[in-house]
Amino acid sequence: MGKDKGLVNYHGTPQREYLYFLLKKVCDSVFLSIRQEQLPETPTSFKTVVDQDKYNGPFNGIMSAFDAHPNVGWLVIACDLPFMDLPSLQQLIGKRNSEKSATAFKNPDTGNPEPLCCIWEPKGLKEALDFLKNSDYPSPKQFLMDAGILLVQPKNKQVLFNANSLSDYKFVKSKLKEQEGG
């Protein structure tokens, strides 16, 4: 997209702030996962977990959160999911099975778990540590595909649309305008 996707404005506020306040409606505590260089530009009123740079890719943020608070489940939502909404979060949380390694939305197009729209359980994150030590391909999706998880079919499959380009941004803005009736 050419810029920090957390700062993209779809809903009248930066996406990271939109999601932060959306998550506050369903979670006891909410944290932004950020890189060290993002800390100065992050509002001080937000709780943060700074990436520890121990892992590559998306696992870096997930495992940094686990390192900070290892005994809780983590509802992880990527900042590039502009259609994420409260009913979808409530659906995922309502289906949560804390006995599993994770509860994840299932991508309706691929059938694969969405690791960045997922509740990661402490048990699963401990298993992920072993996976990371023994894997040549440290993908959260691959871990979830091989782990004992619960897959949930989202009622609104649009919430899994991942916006990564200027054309995606324009599409999202157009769809949101339609949904608002204008």
Rank of each mutant, 00 (worst) to 15 (best):
R96I: 02
E37I: 05
S45A: 13
P154S: 08
M84W: 06
L166I: 05
Q38E: 14
S45V: 13
P14H: 02
S135T: 15
F143Q: 01
G148L: 09
P140T: 01
V76E: 01
Q36D: 09
T44K: 14
I77H: 10
C117W: 09
G61A: 07
D4F: 08
Q153R: 14
L151Q: 11
L125T: 02
H69I: 15
E99P: 01
F171H: 14
G12N: 01
N56L: 11
D136Y: 08
T48D: 01
D51K: 12
Y10I: 03
P108H: 06
K106Y: 07
C117F: 14
N162Q: 14
P82V: 10
G61V: 01
G124M: 07
F143W: 07
E99T: 05
C27A: 15
E121C: 04
K47Q: 14
L92H: 09
K3D: 03
L7N: 03
G148C: 11
E37P: 03
K3M: 05
A163P: 02
L39E: 14
K5L: 08
T44H: 10
N112R: 15
F105P: 00
V26K: 11
T13K: 14
V172N: 08
L89D: 04
K3H: 01
E99Q: 08
F143E: 00
S139M: 07
K47Y: 08
L92M: 08
L144C: 07
P138G: 12
L75D: 04
D67W: 09
N156M: 06
F59P: 00
V49G: 03
L144R: 04
E37W: 13
G124D: 08
E114S: 09
D53R: 10
E180P: 00
G148N: 15
S135C: 11
M63H: 05
S64H: 00
Y55G: 00
K106I: 12
G94K: 11
Q91C: 05
K177T: 08
P113W: 02
P113N: 01
P115Y: 04
A104M: 05
L39I: 05
R16Q: 11
I93Q: 10
F131M: 06
L39Y: 10
D130P: 02
V50A: 08
G148I: 03
A163T: 04
G6S: 08
V49Q: 02
D67E: 15
L166D: 07
I149R: 09
L116N: 12
F171L: 12
P58G: 12
D85Y: 07
D4L: 11
Q38K: 03
Q153T: 14
P40A: 12
T44V: 13
I34Y: 02
L75N: 07
Q36R: 11
F46E: 04
F59G: 03
V8C: 02
L151C: 03
P87E: 13
M84R: 04
K3I: 02
Y137W: 12
